[in-house]
Design a binder for these strands. Structure first.
Length: 229
DNA sequence: GCGACAG
DNA sequence: ATCTTGTCGC
């Protein structure tokens, strides 16, 4: 895994070593413009042996979608906990390359630093495209919930005495989301941004929109293939 | 050996 | 993630 290759000889152990090595390159400081204008959300859906990558770019203040793109690719890797990056990087990058607008950062439906080898898909994507990314996962991979910070809607996620992310209750009464640094952003800013992007769902609007577009494209593909038979 | 385990 | 009906709670 040079940084995007799935060479001939692959082993889970080597992949983990690579993730730990790549994690050293993660930037934990904000590398964002004075005024954030465009926020992107990415997601991937699956149909048969195909992966549908989707990305949306929304206006940061209104959260209205300004552009969306999708991309198809053959699914080349199975889902293996800790190795989600291998499964989702291809369709995701392909969809991002189609964008005309340049997002200030990307919200990713996965963990970033809150990973056993400190390099979840959100961080990996950030390193690959060289842009700021924030990990927003719907469930825990590792770590335990620590003390609540300030208000009672944010708690730290720790692992072996290290802060790896935050557990944020974006909607009262709903399950929390797990926020972690992807790349080129601080945990504090990541939490702030995730909260700002909440509307009707506990999931940040850009990721929700990307999910809907990926699902719609998946549906379109399913219907089209049914007609061709 | 027995669980836990992002999407 | 995907499949898939009813059902519990506000």
């Amino acid at each position: 895994m040079g940084i995007t290759d799935l060479g001939t000889n692959f082993s889970i152990e080597k992949a983990h070593e690579t993730q730990l090595r790549l994690s050293k390159r993660i930037v934990f400081e904000d590398v964002l413009p004075e005024k954030i204008r465009f926020v992107a959300g990415v997601d991937v859906a699956y149909v048969k042996d195909l992966s549908v990558g989707a990305v949306v770019v929304s206006d940061y203040s209104s959260l209205k979608v300004l552009e969306s793109q999708t991309a198809l690719s053959k699914t080349r890797f199975p889902y293996i906990p800790t190795l989600l990056s291998f499964r989702e990087i291809q369709p995701t990058v392909l969809s991002i390359r189609k964008l005309h607008l340049q997002p200030d950062f990307f919200l990713v439906d996965a963990h970033g630093f809150a990973h056993p080898y400190r390099c979840g898909f959100a961080s990996y994507l950030g390193l690959v495209i060289g842009k700021p990314t924030i990990g927003v996962a719907k469930s825990r991979l590792i770590g335990h919930v620590e003390d609540t910070i300030g208000e009672k809607d944010v708690a730290l996620l720790e692992h072996e005495d290290e802060v790896i992310g935050a557990v944020v209750t974006t909607k009262r009464g709903c399950k929390p989301v797990y926020v972690s640094v992807g790349h080129m952003v601080s945990l504090e800013t990541a939490i702030e941004i995730v909260k700002h992007c909440i509307r009707h769902s506990r999931i940040p609007e850009p990721i929700l929109k990307a999910h809907q577009i990926a699902t719609a494209e998946k549906q379109r593909i399913t219907v089209a293939s049914a007609v061709n038979k």
